[in-house]
Design a protein around this nucleic acid. Structure first.
Lengths: 334, 334
DNA sequence: TTGAAAGCGGTACCAA
DNA sequence: TTGGTACCGCTTTCAA
């Protein structure tokens, strides 16, 4: 900037203003500045700008697992919105570990991100009080905390659970099990949708049909495999299994087939997330699409609006409509 | 910092030094400073620090596709190494588009990243001259440019191609086709390995067996599907197909099965990347593992060493050993 | 329409 | 071992 100013015989301030399209600069001065800036291949020092404006133009995203393509798709959607917005994206993975998530959030806050987006692995909301104190706006993505008002983008998990369960029922299943997750809102919501739908259809909700794939010490598909095996060994074997996500469903698929059972004839199967390769699985997997990429996009737009809001705004929840995707794993002959 | 200094009756400089474990501060002063800093929940303004030191402690990673789990795993490995290192990771996706990649790189350079890691979608190395000028160290990941000396972490693609082809031959295939990619080093290297191995075994390299899945206008699996269909309609149908990555192989798998052929009896299939869910596919897919997560880890360590090097160091290539993973898709009865 | 002065929150250099 | 001064590169406020 100094160089440009010197070369043109104007002040640094003038250059600064011209570069940012400030109103009170004559068109010709601006043109000259822009020209020289291009010639010198100038690009502003964002750290310096951040120091004085207090805005870093950095966004932080924390996901439980980058390799789970559901979250990768969210990141992709977000990344697309941010392109050409002037914002850069810091991504951290918590590995589904609440403690690591806290560290990641702290690191991002220390970085001075303008906004934080988190698909949280926390069991409760305590960790976010801390974020609120720092006055950094944040958005919960995919996973929320019941009874806690915060910006949120995702689907209504009860609807997800209801859609999946309803579908299994209409496919002729009557003994429907559910493999859920632990501690997180998505698990609770989907379970609730499952329960409600069964009840509405006058189907008994059996406690032994509700199990959770605890993946604290193993991968999701492994957990799904183990859990499904238990379900299949019950006296009254379920004829349909609704899994709270696709990786778990993949594990369950393996368990069912290894037990010599057919999908969907003996056991119908449905997951959540509609991963890109669901179609190419051993048995193409039915799933509830959660609009993962769209979640990222909407979250990105909301994030920008939050940053640019003059005053703190009331938390806003954006609910996307989940969509049933039916594939072989649940197409039962009537 | 000012507050701490005031509270303790020392200078800001003393605080600064104490906080950074600078040698010439008395242990007791340091202890007092640390204590007060903790009480005040102080965290340094990284933008300010970056401004004066010229180091942002930011790393930039550009990948062609976040949703392709091969790259997600690289990001995961990298992210793991960076945890607690004081570095944060900016991630951008180029969507396999050279132009978008350039933009992403420029944005990251503008951000002042201390180092850049790129799995490049460029056809040639021109775009990196630009990076070199900025004197920002960078590492090519997975994909390199032939004859261009740069830091690199990945596998030797010729070995990958050789491993896969060798395996198909030993599985009894004699008419082996290859679905490659376009313009990038990995595609060229794997093709070369394929050629060389066939020749070594005295098998004719037929041009009509070498096709490329151009995914400029469609997804990789779709491209794989289309391309495989062409191969299957040849007069002399191949009895084995080596695909240059797993998404393409998934498309090819679909094509083969839809054509009423069996895998591996009629056509054996192998891909590259060893994606996590290869095991759960319609036909479990043989693949060459490229140690994706390890690539991320090694790249991360190299990146840190590059930043901390006093003097520019000679570019270093780290080659990991690819590993054959045999699954149903290539287990042919002898 | 332009520019001077001040300062954002730190750190480096050198003197005390 | 401690601290003063200057400055990193930019923006904001206000005066010219």
């Amino acid at each position: 900037m100094k160089d440009i100013a010197r070369d043109l015989g104007v002040s640094v301030i003038t250059v600064s203003k011209a570069l940012r399209n400030h109103s009170d600069i004559s068109p010709e001065t601006r043109a000259r500045v822009l020209k020289r800036a291009r010639e010198l291949n100038y690009s502003p020092n964002l750290a310096a700008r951040a120091l004085v404006t207090g805005r870093t133009h950095l966004m932080g995203l924390v996901v439980p697992d980058l390799v789970h393509s559901f979250f990768a798709e969210i990141a992709k959607g977000l990344s697309g919105i941010l392109r050409n917005s002037g914002y850069s994206l810091l991504i951290s993975s918590s590995e589904e570990n609440p403690e690591l998530e806290k560290q990641a959030v702290d690191q991002l806050l220390g970085r001075g991100v303008d906004v934080l987006l988190v698909a949280s692995a926390q069991e409760n909301v305590d960790a976010f009080q801390h974020v609120t104190e720092k006055k950094v706006p944040y958005i919960l993505v995919d996973r929320s905390f019941s009874g806690f008002a915060a910006n949120f983008v995702g689907v209504k998990d009860e609807t997800v659970g209801a859609l999946a369960t309803e579908h299994l029922i209409s496919a002729g299943c009557r003994t429907i099990a559910h493999i859920g997750g632990t501690h997180i809102s998505t698990a609770a919501g989907r379970l609730e949708g499952y329960r409600r739908t069964l009840s509405q259809h006058g189907i008994l909700v059996r406690p032994e049909y509700i199990v959770s794939a605890d993946k604290s010490d193993e991968s999701a598909d492994n957990a799904g495999y183990q859990t499904a095996m238990k379900l299949l060994s019950l006296d009254l074997r379920p004829d349909g299994i609704f899994c709270f996500n696709d990786p778990v469903a993949i594990g369950a698929m393996k368990a069912i087939l290894e037990s010599g059972l057919r999908i969907p004839e003996d056991v119908a199967l449905i997951g959540c997330g509609n991963l890109h390769f669901d179609d190419a699985l051993r048995v193409p997997l039915s799933s509830v699409d959660q609009r993962s990429e769209m979640i990222g996009q909407r979250a990105g737009r909301l994030a920008i609006s939050l940053i640019e809001a003059e005053f703190p705004v009331r938390p806003k929840s954006i609910f996307l409509e989940p969509k049933l995707v039916i594939r072989e794993s649940s197409k039962r002959p009537r």
